[in-house]
Write a protein that binds this DNA or RNA. Structure first.
Length: 648
RNA sequence: GGGUCCGUGACGCAGGACGGAUAGCGUGUCAGCCUUCUAAGCUGAAAGUCAUGGGUUCAAAUCCCAUCGGACCCGCCA
């Protein structure tokens, strides 16, 4: 007998037993679903129901008496995987028949192998997962890296769930920052990078942005002094101080580049204006602007792609934001929004009245908003006629929904409001179905101790740096722990250990919680890390390798130890964990699951011999168990994009 | 000012959608375990008002309200 979800079979049997018992004892009680939970103590069995507490209320009886009654009424002749049913403390406890359940579970895992646990959904859906989408201005920094780690894990998980998943990278090349970097790049006469391209572009961006900002502040200062000298001047002075400090830092870090840009930008009276003009030309699709901005963006993306290859992440589609402006889809959607009646002109700019839509369509509850919570309006178009990010995102979202039924946007929490307004815009356009299938998967920022990372200020640690350091540290570890390995082996191990450690560390924490970046957090090679789980997997492989035989005619009944039973339950529950993590989008759960299973296996490993077990029969059964654990660890790691090695 | 998210041993975290039995794990501290399948490991000890105060309930870390503390948002930025 093979099952895709062994534990669920057991649970179903318990439910049936309980339902039948209830029918014979208290036929008048109507209970649709039985509350079933895993007791935290194995002495209470493998599943427990607190149904008696609920019944007690209406029947005015003691829960303990009801539990006893129900347990007694359980029809033993129908038991397959249930061993016994016992009342305790008001609960009805179900004990699994391990002789049968172990066989059932381990044979299922043996049969299904790499597919075990990946239960397919009843309704396969086309899903677009948009993730990363770092602006093509600077290298991906460690704060932003949380995004692809989560996004890729989500894509893997949803795809394993049986959906048709497409991974999209949205290239935001229309924003004003793109014009900033392009302006600096042009001023330097389009230099050829002498280092990784995104790093190179990032330097130009930071220095240009800084110099332009200072120039702008200086001009504002002069104006402010003429009119109202006090408050305004103080604020500008403060900003100016900050940017001057940054300028000093940048000059120290990249003296040549700084000097060159200072000189070139100095030629322009008002760089701000030049940049705005470039931005306008780009949106208009003017050929020179197009060529220039696309060139810098491509340069930067070239660097991104290298980084992505390192971490084994790929995309099915690279979507240029500018395409939606140029092909008229943005203006088309603007027209539709205007026609919806929720857009008005306010001092020359177009505003979308999200609040009005919500009130009129009675969306507050649907959107999970409180009664009194108001949603601010969204500006769609600037006075100069250029569009804003969210406006363009509406057009992009419509495009996505032409290709998928569901869209998951992996975007930082700080954009929650914009994502909400985007959704409201879909409602305004009469696209309720799409709006409901638009998911904002938000996550909190990664900060540096003391301050926020800021690309514009050049304050960041790049993802590449972290990965390189991780691999370097992993190499030192391997060399120390396994000096006998060949150089190639060490390098290979260092690579998947280092990268795995970083991936795991960024996926492991609840996305809603902020992470303060420290090296030892990301480069953890001990318990609760990818290396720990990888190591455990390698250990299991090692045993199987040394045993050198495929167990046949296994007598699973000789797995009698508590540790073995716990492991059986743990692996049998993997499908449940997978379903939950897929349907509730909880990638971090998989990391926890893998770590918990590894913990249990390591305890088992230290306590009970496999190859040198008391009898050959036990060895065979334990090998089967070890093999199942190996499979499940590997499948779990696979979901979060971490390699499960045979050896390390 | 308004809103969203968060607050769990010294530190870092899990559990929270769906309320149930003594709240898990790691780091650090202390005491141990390599002639036995990989010590990136394991065993044991000390360490908790689950931010605070109310409420709902037979039962609250979990649900509701308030307060305090932290992060983020409220832009003709993205």
């Amino acid at each position: 007998m093979v099952s895709v979800n062994p534990f669920a079979e057991f649970r179903r049997e318990c439910e049936n037993v309980l339902a039948a018992a209830l029918k014979t004892t208290i036929p008048e009680a109507k209970i649709e679903t039985f509350p079933m939970s895993k007791p935290n103590n194995p002495n209470f069995g493998q599943l427990a129901s607190s149904v008696s507490f609920e019944l007690a209320k209406n029947l005015k009886k003691k829960p303990a008496d009801l539990a006893a009654q129900l347990a007694k009424a359980a029809d033993k002749t129908r038991f397959v995987m249930v061993e016994k049913v016992e009342p305790a403390g008001g609960y009805v406890n179900f004990y699994v028949n391990f002789a049968k359940f172990s066989a059932f579970t381990l044979e299922s895992i043996g049969q299904l192998g790499q597919e075990f646990g990946f239960i397919k959904t009843d309704k396969p859906t086309k899903i677009i997962v948009e993730h990363t989408s770092v602006n093509p201005l600077h290298p991906i920094h460690i704060g932003q890296a949380r995004n692809p780690m989560l996004g890729d894990a989500l894509a893997r998980i949803l795809s394993r769930r049986g959906n048709e998943v497409s991974r999209h990278y949205y290239i935001d090349d229309v924003g004003r920052q793109s014009s900033v970097v392009a302006y600096g790049y042009a001023k330097l006469s389009k230099p050829v990078p002498d280092e990784k391209a995104d790093l190179f572009v990032g330097k130009i961006y930071t220095v240009t942005a800084c110099l332009v900002e200072i120039k702008k502040l200086n001009r504002q200062m002069e104006l402010a002094k003429k009119v109202e000298p006090t408050e305004e001047v103080a604020k500008i002075t403060k900003d100016l101080d900050e940017w001057m400090t940054i300028a000093e830092e940048l000059e120290g870090k990249y003296p040549k580049l700084f000097k060159a840009l200072l000189e070139k930008i100095g030629e322009d009276k008002n760089p701000e204006e030049e940049i705005n003009r470039l931005n306008r030309c780009y949106e208009d699709g003017e050929p020179n602007a197009r060529a220039l901005i696309r060139e810098v963006s491509e340069l930067c993306l070239e660097g991104f792609r290298k980084t992505q290859r390192k971490v084994n992440i790929s995309y099915d589609s690279w979507d240029w934001e500018s395409d939606f402006v140029w092909n008229g889809q943005v203006s088309k959607v603007l027209g539709q929004l205007e026609a919806s009646g929720f857009v008005h002109n306010e001092n020359g700019v177009l505003e979308f009245d999200a609040e009005k839509v919500i009130a009129k369509m009675d969306l507050r509850k649907k959107l999970g908003l409180r009664e009194e919570q108001e949603v601010p309006p969204l500006t769609l178009v600037r006075a100069d006629g250029t569009t804003l990010y969210t406006t363009r995102d509406v057009a992009y979202t419509l495009w996505k929904f032409e290709r998928a039924q569901k869209v998951v946007n992996v975007i930082g929490m700080e954009q929650s409001l914009a994502q909400l307004q985007l959704k409201v815009a879909l409602y305004a356009l009469g696209l309720s179905k799409q709006a409901e299938n638009l998911v904002h998967f938000g996550y909190s920022l990664v900060t540096l101790p003391g301050y926020k990372m800021s690309s514009r200020r050049g304050h960041y640690i790049t993802f590449d740096e972290v990965l390189d350091e991780a691999v370097k540290r992993a190499y030192e570890e391997v060399s120390k722990r396994s000096p006998m390995l060949t150089e190639d082996e060490k390098r290979n191990i260092a690579n998947f250990v280092g990268i795995g450690a970083v991936r795991y560390a960024l996926v492991d924490v609840d996305p809603g919680k902020p992470v303060v970046f420290t090296w030892d957090r990301v480069l953890n090679f001990e318990t609760n890390s990818a290396p720990y789980v990888q190591y455990t997997h390698a250990r299991a492989c090692s045993i199987l390798r040394k045993a050198n035989k495929n167990p046949e005619n296994v007598n699973y009944a000789c797995l009698k130890e508590n540790l073995e039973h716990e492991l059986i339950i743990a692996v049998a529950s993997f499908p449940d964990a997978f379903i939950e993590c897929a349907d509730y989008l909880k990638p971090n759960m998989i990391a926890d699951y893998a770590n918990a299973l590894a913990d249990k296996f390591n305890t088992f490993y230290n306590a009970l011999p496999v190859i040198k077990a008391e009898t050959v029969e036990i060895t065979r059964a334990r090998l089967a168990l070890t093999d199942a654990i190996r499979t499940v660890l590997s499948n779990a790691l696979n979901l979060i994009g971490v390699i499960a090695p045979d050896k390390m």
